[in-house]
Nucleic acid binder design. Structure first.
Length: 564
RNA sequence: CGGGACGUGGCGCAGCCUGGUAGCGCACCGGCUUUGGGUGCCGGGGGUCGCCGGUUCGAAUCCGGCCGUCCCGACCA
């Protein structure tokens, strides 16, 4: 593409409300513009990158035998009512002119399953993998970080249909391998981690995570690779404090004015690991006392798997149920309150609140002094033991770039998607669902790969492979040379941008080229001719790699192909 | 939804406290200059100061309400 006459608006300054690096750079480099909160338009150069990642994803989906669909964004509400997903907070709802309730799709499990219910009849029709690229709409409570968390975005979503769980396992594995190839081709650092099944429901799930400080999720992983999981479900071997001998009975002691674990630790001289932290939440069926060790935090999501929906208790509620303020409550002698203890509490003896203001108990033992359900409800701490290898776990912020779910029959049963097996028995189709946000992959790539001058695109995602900066006007020998090189590189299969703008100063062209971040930049000016060398810059590291004029196009192709 | 901040030409900002009818840098247009790292100089064009209402002789400025945007938290298929 010749740049003159094209629309490519770059910005010297990022918008003041841009925070994430990818957000600033995508706006400054003329890739996207914001329309409203969580709504972004892709500009022509941004669309080129989006097209490239889309192609990579499509190729890898096709490689595992998946077939592409296109499904409606607007959908009748009844289908969502059938699966119990009508009315979710994030769902955009509307009516057509006759008053029929419609929704804008947040995802397409219902629609795929609806079609499967009508077309799939026999085990001979299975397995299938169906995918699409389609706009998803989600009324996010808080769009943020530019393009990372938005209300409208394109998703590649695919769905596997199998006769049984063994088939699902094969489809799931095929998708995991396809995803690995996609993210490798995209030049990303990524991990596949165990993830919470969340509101999708189902039997197992993994997420593909790109490490980045801009990430909204956190994973725990073993440096050896033995284990990696979203902290929403990560487990670890906690580091036990030295409990000493367990006393024969607990005893109260005064703790006037002490309300936090830290104050209690300071007052007693004991490590926080010997405190039992008491957190009260209110569920639909009443109060629940959650117990974790002092150094740990209660994990809301883990707790919700045990007790369902809940909210923090108010101080006056706590006083009513426990007879003391939040700083002095504990599990001993409690009646009428459900108690859930993290399994770490089952070892050792603890300091807890006495349910009397200004008083705590020491030597409290789970099982002897109080009864509690046990469930993993704590967050993992960095440095705790890997559950597989025992090595210290690392915690790392990540961007979720893809996910894979084993849905099972969660959607096929309510929507009647069944098939007849070889014994003429009707069985529900066993499903999986698999998502990738192409724009998020771009943003993650920028978060992982940029410098002070701008974007450093992995070669698979750059809007162009080679960016030629022409220094000089149209009717010059160097312009002729640039045009010739442009043609040669194009013939070699490269996508080339030729900056042939005449009114733009060379310095400005260089700055904009580095902002845009194509892997290879070639500068052609008076100095280039007649004998060269041809000045070539590799964007990653901004390293000069000049090549002779003779065979320049092939040399550039070779240099390009060696880029990440 | 809770907490915080912001809203003034396309972008970044000052002016607001202490009311007197809007300014700077970049971008844009014209001229000259320059021609390998956002050139330099001169001259220009462009703003309902987010919206509505109130106070006042007079409101970008003070007061109230609303809207929008961002950040932290909650939430997050």
């Amino acid at each position: 593409m010749r740049l003159s006459g094209r629309f490519w608006p770059t910005l010297r300054d990022a918008p003041a409300d841009a925070e994430a690096i990818s957000h600033k750079l995508m706006v400054r480099a003329g890739l996207v513009r914001q329309l409203a909160s969580g709504l972004y338009s892709f500009l022509p150069f941004g669309l080129r990158s989006l097209g490239r990642i889309t192609t990579v994803i499509r190729e890898e989906m096709d490689r595992i035998g998946a077939q592409e669909f296109q499904l409606p964004v607007m959908q009748p509400a009844e289908i969502w009512e059938a699966t119990g997903r009508y009315g979710l907070d994030e769902q955009f709802r509307l009516q057509d002119r006759s008053g029929r309730a419609m929704v804008l799709g947040m995802t397409h499990e219902e629609i795929i399953t609806w079609h499967a219910a009508r077309e799939i009849r026999s085990y001979r029709d299975l397995p299938q993998s169906w995918y699409q690229f389609q706009t998803k709409l989600r009324d996010e409570p808080r769009p943020k970080s530019g393009i990372l968390r938005v209300r409208e975005f394109t998703m590649k979503d695919s769905y596997s249909l199998d006769v049984d769980e063994a088939g699902l396992a094969r489809s799931y594995e095929a998708h995991a391998e396809a995803y690995a190839r996609m993210f490798d081709r995209a030049g990303l650092d990524w991990y596949m981690v165990e993830s919470d099944v969340g509101m999708m429901g189902g039997m197992g799930a993994h997420e593909f995570m790109a490490p980045s400080p801009a990430g909204e999720d956190t994973i725990a992983r073993a440096p050896s690779g033995a284990y990696a999981a979203n902290v929403e479900l990560a487990v670890s071997v906690a580091i036990d404090p030295d409990f000493g001998e367990t006393p024969a009975a607990y005893e109260p002691f005064p703790t006037p004015g002490i309300g936090t674990i830290e104050e209690l630790s300071a007052a007693t001289g004991l490590p926080t690991g010997r405190m039992c932290k008491s957190v009260v939440v209110v569920t639909d069926t009443g109060p629940v006392l959650a117990l974790v060790r002092g150094e740990h935090a209660l994990h809301e999501k883990k707790l919700s798997h045990v007790v369902g929906r809940h909210r923090p208790a108010q101080p006056d509620e706590i006083r009513e149920w426990f007879g003391a303020g939040p700083g002095s409550i504990g599990p001993v002698g409690l009646e009428g309150v459900r108690i859930v203890a993290d399994p770490t509490i089952a070892t050792g003896h603890y300091v807890t609140g006495a349910n009397r203001d200004g008083e705590h108990l020491r030597g409290v033992v789970l099982g002897r002094d109080f009864a509690a359900e046990q469930a993993d409800i704590r967050t993992v701490l960095a440095g705790e033991g890997c559950p597989v290898s025992g090595e210290p776990l690392v915690l790392e912020p990540v961007i979720e770039i893809g996910n894979i779910f084993k849905l099972g029959t969660k959607y096929s049963e309510p929507l009647g998607a069944t098939y007849l097996n070889a014994d003429s028995q009707e069985r529900p189709i066993v499903m999986g669902s698999y998502g990738i946000g192409p724009a998020r992959v771009l943003a993650a790539a920028i978060e992982q790969s940029h410098d002070e001058a701008g974007i450093v695109w992995p070669k698979a995602l750059a809007p162009f492979d080679v960016h030629i900066v022409l220094v000089g006007d149209a009717a010059t020998p160097q312009a002729d040379f640039a045009a010739a090189l442009f043609g040669q590189l194009t013939d070699l299969g490269l996508e080339v941008l030729l900056d042939d703008r005449e009114a733009t100063k060379p310095g400005e062209k260089f700055v904009e080229a580095e902002l845009l971040g194509c892997p290879i930049r070639v500068t052609i000016g008076k100095r280039t001719l007649p004998d060269g060398p041809l000045e070539v810059q590799v964007r990653r590291g901004r390293e000069r790699c000049d090549v002779p004029l003779h065979g320049a196009a092939e040399a550039i192709l070779s240099l390009w192909s060696r880029q990440r």
